[in-house]
């Protein structure tokens, strides 16, 4: 089983030091307070929690953007030396990230073709013609076309931009993809297309996803495993069925209770209770 583990995190921590002022003492914020989990190859782990609970900090540590202040990070069975300057190119290629806001994560002055070619130019010594060919292939894979190669980000809709961001993340054939709220900024109909695309790509490339979201209906659809975070700690972790059918922690239950229900029975119940209240008044 051990060789099937794609990502293992052991007691990982991240503290941020807030500088003190003349009258203000220094302060340490514990953003992530010792989180551990294992994730198998080809599976999807969803991390759920409210803003400020440390889920994005965790994503930044897994993708080497932030250095953990404690704990170990094992990717594909190898312990990662996360100190600045000690990361191997090989390791960088294995892990990629897609950010929440497709409007902010693409350079407005860079053509889409260059956006997709840049990871190859930096990490490999592939000739330009081959980079171009690979970029065009990837555009087709994510549902765009070669005709989009020379366009700028502002010429695309939100859903198309998120496709471009996903394509850019996939250019280096990563094993692990971290998706930080990839569909939160998108409309319902576009959200469905992007989620379908992610499912197709996972099948095709055997990708492992760490999917960060606060939308439980999306999580229920896409995840194999669910981890709930609350104030920097993982308060619940289990398979999707376990967490959704039998939530253990109070916060998870609060989260479920707060999610709006869109099925006919709950609407009927709400209307009935409203009528009863109106009759009583």
């Amino acid at each position: 089983m051990s060789d099937n583990t794609m990502l293992e995190v052991r007691d990982i921590r991240r503290d941020y030091e807030l500088p003190g002022g003349l009258f203000k003492p220094k302060k340490t914020v514990h953003a992530v307070k010792g989180v551990s989990f294992k994730l198998e190859r080809g599976k999807t782990l969803a991390i759920v929690g409210e803003s400020g609970c440390g889920k994005s900090t965790l994503a930044r540590m897994i993708t080497f953007i932030d250095e953990p202040t404690g704990g170990d990070l094992l990717i594909d069975g190898t312990k990662v030396d996360t100190r600045p300057g000690h990361l191997t190119k090989d390791m960088r290629q294995k892990v990629q990230i897609v950010f929440q806001n497709p409007y902010g994560s693409l350079n407005p002055r860079q053509k889409i073709g260059d956006v997709l070619g840049e990871p190859l130019a930096i990490n490999t010594d592939m000739p330009a013609s081959e980079r171009r060919e690979r970029a065009n292939q990837m555009l087709t894979k994510v549902g765009l076309g070669p005709e989009h190669y020379n366009r700028y980000p502002h010429m695309f809709s939100g859903g198309q931009r998120q496709r471009i961001a996903i394509a850019r993340a996939l250019m280096l054939n990563p094993k692990l993809l971290v998706l930080d709220e990839p569909v939160s900024a998108l409309d319902l109909s576009v959200q469905a297309q992007v989620l379908n695309l992610l499912a197709d790509l996972q099948d095709e490339f055997g990708l492992t996803y760490v999917f960060i979201s606060h939308d439980l209906s999306v999580v229920r659809y896409i995840a194999d495993e669910v981890m709930v975070m609350y104030f920097g700690e993982a308060v619940e972790h289990g398979t999707r069925e376990e967490v959704f059918s039998d939530p253990k922690h109070d916060y998870t239950r609060t989260l479920f209770a707060a999610t709006p229900r869109a099925d006919v029975e709950s609407i009927r119940a709400r209307i009935a209770s409203k009528k009863a209240a109106a009759a009583a008044a």
Partner: peptide, 20 residues
């Protein structure tokens, strides 16, 4: 109809129905 079908909780099988 398309909007309601695109809700992840209404997904039937592996794929979500999209508006198109």
């Amino acid at each position: 109809k398309a909007l309601l079908a695109a809700l992840p909780e209404n997904a039937t099988g592996d794929r979500l129905t999209t508006v198109s």
